[in-house]
Amino acid sequence: MNTTPQLKQQLRELLPALRRFAISLCGSAADADDLVQSTLERLLSRGVPEQAELMAWAFTVCRNLWLDEHRARQVREKAALQPELQEATCADGEAQLSEQRELRQVDVALNQLPAEQRTIIALIAVQGLSYREVADILGVPTGTIMSRLARARVKLAEVMGLTTSSPNAHQLGASS
């Protein structure tokens, strides 16, 4: 087990990546910081097994904590998407409105993904991990990573209005 000073040093180096992952999962820096804080507290209080690779372990802890909160988070974010609340937040200028719309669109799209697909998008599209690394973190075969990621991208492209024709014309992989 890592000693606390060593672990703190390693976690400081990992912090930017961990926060980026948390933002990918949560959608906002504020929620992500809560998640990062909980993750760090968990890691510092319970330690990291000697044989564990710290980044993979930290991402797993982070993801598990996020999953614990996922349902409540979704309810909260759906409430925040009520039109009357949106109007209250969109007040200053066309540029800001446009930016907010785009950010909101990304949030809306990500919120429509199942948790496991969102996790994979976060680890691959944002963190740049390989399919093998993500498979190790999530404990599933690389084929599953590949198919879930493809489904996630297709779904996101649809929700974001980036596809001009139905992507169903393209076969989705059989493995899932």
């Binding site: 906002s28 949030d107 998008i121 599209a125 596809t163």
Partner: peptide, 26 residues
């Protein structure tokens, strides 16, 4: 076209995360 859409999906998510990442950490 689908490949381009996937690239744009990744780009938008990445930009979104990077934008949030600019917010000072607690």
């Amino acid at each position: 076209a689908l490949l381009a859409a996937m690239v744009m999906v990744d780009e938008r998510i990445y930009q979104h995360v990077e934008q949030q990442q600019q917010i000072p950490m607690a």
